[in-house]
């Protein structure tokens, strides 16, 4: 493991510890470096600001975690992702409360979108409007996950994913049933 990685990991652990106790806006660079006995200089050598650090934590931890889940596909993958967020809920709930440019929520969207998108891309792959449909569902689920986290996770990941699944597949099922009924009447 490189020295540079060890330094970044130490800064990350300090940030995560602070985020368990304080809102992210209140955390200063001096708090982070003090907690892991480093200098401001070494912080800025690696990161632009605290948002940059939080993005790095998300990318390295989440992506590492998700790599082991990729054999699962579709809803199971989405459920596994939600379980991961649930296990690390204090960090994500806190990070997602900060909005605006360069904030974590923007980066969260950038990483989450392609993962969810690729699940739906396969469903619509024979349609000429694949991109539109896959983006529509990817956006809906990503926003739902963000809201679930921002509302401080009031339901379990299993229940949450069951409801999303119901909203997507249940709607399709209902529409087909309605169409069949109309056909029968005709």
């Amino acid at each position: 493991m490189s020295d540079s990685y060890i330094t970044k990991r130490a800064l990350a652990e300090a940030m995560k510890e602070l985020m368990l106790k304080h809102p992210m806006e209140k955390i200063k660079i001096s708090d982070i470096v003090e907690l892991c006995n480093m200098t401001r200089q070494s912080f800025y050598y690696h990161f632009k600001d605290k948002y940059d650090l939080v993005n790095w934590i998300f990318y390295t931890e989440f992506v590492e975690n998700i790599q082991n889940m990729l054999e699962k596909s579709g809803w199971l993958l989405i459920e596994k992702m939600c379980m991961y967020f649930y296990e690390n809920r204090q960090f994500y709930v806190n990070a997602l409360k900060v909005r605006g440019q360069n904030s974590f929520s923007e980066y969260f969207n950038e990483v989450m979108h392609p993962i969810i998108y690729s699940q739906f891309e396969d469903v619509f792959k024979d349609d000429k409007n694949t991109e539109f449909y896959a983006t529509f569902f990817a956006d809906a689920i990503r926003v739902a996950i963000t809201r679930w986290l921002q509302e401080e996770i009031k339901i379990t990941p299993e229940e949450f994913v069951r409801m999303i699944k119901m909203a997507v597949t249940g709607l399709a099922y209902k529409l087909i049933k309605d169409m069949e009924k109309q056909k029968e009447k005709a």
């Binding site: 992506v63 998700i66 990729l70 980066y107 990483v111 392609p114 690729s118």
Partner: peptide
């Protein structure tokens, strides 16, 4: 040619990181 889903996802995740990079 369509890649298996797992690799497609990893490809997309790396794209997000490279964009940011």
């Amino acid at each position: 040619m369509h890649m298996p889903n797992r690799n497609e996802i990893i490809y997309r995740i790396i794209e997000a990181a490279v964009d940011k990079g």
